[in-house]
C-alpha cells in the first residue's frame, strides 16, 4: 500500500497540489516499513524492468531502490535507505542484460530501458557464497535464534551453515560495554560501515571510523578509545543502523551479556 502511495507521489512529478516543489526526498520520503536500500531521489522518472516487472523511479535512484519499489527487494547488508550507498557487502549483486559481470545494485544507478535480473542460478550461487563467508566468522551458537537484518537475510537466502572449517576468527574479541545504553560486540560485526556512515552522515559527529585493514578492520570510536571516552554523543544512530546486532541496546538483554 505504502509503495503505491510512493508511486502516486512520484508520478505527480514532485509537485504537490499547491504547486510546491517536493524537496529533500532523501529524508522526507522515507517509509517506516520499507527499506529501499538507498535514499529516495527526486527528478525525472526513468523506466526499467526488474525480474519482468516494469517500474518507474526518479533518475539517480539505484537499481536496488527500483527493485524495492517494484516489489522485488534485493538482499543486502551494508545498504539502508537512510544512508548513501557504499557497496561493500557484495550481497546485492544483480545481472543486467547486455552488461558484463555482476554489479552491486546499490551503487549502480538506474537507466532508461535496463532489464535487470535479481535472482539467477549464478547470482544465487555467488550470493550464498558471500553469506557463507560472513557466517564463517560469526559466533556459531548465535545464528539460529537471532532476528537482526543479518539473521533475517540468512534465513531468506536459506543459508544456515558454511562450508569452511574453523579458521582465524573474531569470536573472542573484547566487548565494549562502556556506554551505559548500548554495547559493541566485535565478534558480530560484519564491518559494513553502516555505523560509521550513520555517525557522519546522519548525526554529523564523525566519532566512528574503521581502523585496520582486511581481517583486522574494526569499528573504532575515537582514537582507540572506548565508546564512552570517545567523541560519541550516544545518539544511537549507529545502533539503529547496525544490521547484525553487533551494536545493540543493553535494555534488550536480561542478565549478563555473554556468548553461548
Amino acid at each position: 500500500m505504502k509503495i503505491l502511495i510512493y508511486y502516486l507521489v512520484s508520478f505527480a512529478g514532485q509537485i504537490d497540489l499547491k504547486g510546491n516543489k517536493f524537496m529533500w526526498s532523501e529524508i522526507r520520503n522515507l517509509i517506516e516499513e520499507v527499506d529501499y536500500g538507498t535514499p529516495p531521489r527526486e527528478g525525472k522518472l526513468v523506466n526499467l524492468t526488474i525480474d519482468g516487472v516494469n517500474v518507474s523511479v526518479p533518475e539517480k535512484s539505484s537499481i536496488m531502490f527500483a527493485a524495492a519499489a517494484a516489489g522485488k527487494p534485493i538482499p543486502k547488508l551494508c545498504a539502508t535507505d537512510t544512508l548513501e550507498a557504499f557497496g561493500s557487502c557484495r550481497v546485492c549483486l544483480v545481472e543486467i542484460e547486455g552488461k558484463y559481470g555482476y554489479p552491486a545494485s546499490c551503487t549502480t544507478p538506474v537507466a532508461e530501458g535496463l532489464v535487470v535480473r535479481t535472482t539467477t542460478e549464478k547470482l544465487d550461487q555467488i550470493r550464498r557464497g558471500v553469506l557463507e563467508l560472513y557466517l564463517s566468522d560469526f559466533p556459531p551458537g548465535e545464528i539460529a535464534d537471532g532476528w537482526s537484518e543479518f539473521h533475517e537475510t540468512l534465513k531468506k537466502e536459506g543459508v544456515s551453515r558454511h562450508r569452511y572449517g574453523q579458521g582465524k576468527n573474531h569470536f573472542d574479541e573484547l566487548l565494549d560495554t562502556s556506554n551505559p545504553y548500548f554495547l559493541f560486540d566485535p565478534s558480530k560485526c560484519i564491518v559494513c560501515s553502516r555505523c560509521v556512515r550513520a555517525c557522519s552522515e546522519i548525526q554529523g559527529t564523525f566519532a566512528l571510523s574503521i581502523a585496520g585493514r582486511g581481517f583486522d578492520s574494526v569499528v573504532n570510536a575515537g582514537q582507540d578509545e572506548n565508546f564512552l571516552e570517545s567523541e560519541c554523543v550516544s545518539c544511537g544512530a549507529c545502533v539503529q543502523a547496525c544490521p547484525s546486532h553487533a551494536l545493540v541496546e543493553k535494555s534488550l538483554f536480561e542478565g549478563e551479556y555473554k556468548h553461548v
Partner: peptide, 26 residues
C-alpha cells in the same frame, strides 16, 4: 518498555534521535 527507536516517518526527526529520547526513558 525495553527500547525506543526513532520513527523514520517522523517529520521532525526522519529516523534520527539523541541520547535523551532514544535511551533516557527509564
Amino acid at each position: 518498555i525495553v527500547r525506543m527507536t526513532p520513527w523514520k516517518e517522523g517529520k521532525a526527526n526522519h529516523g534520527h534521535s539523541c541520547v535523551k529520547g532514544r535511551f533516557a526513558f527509564d
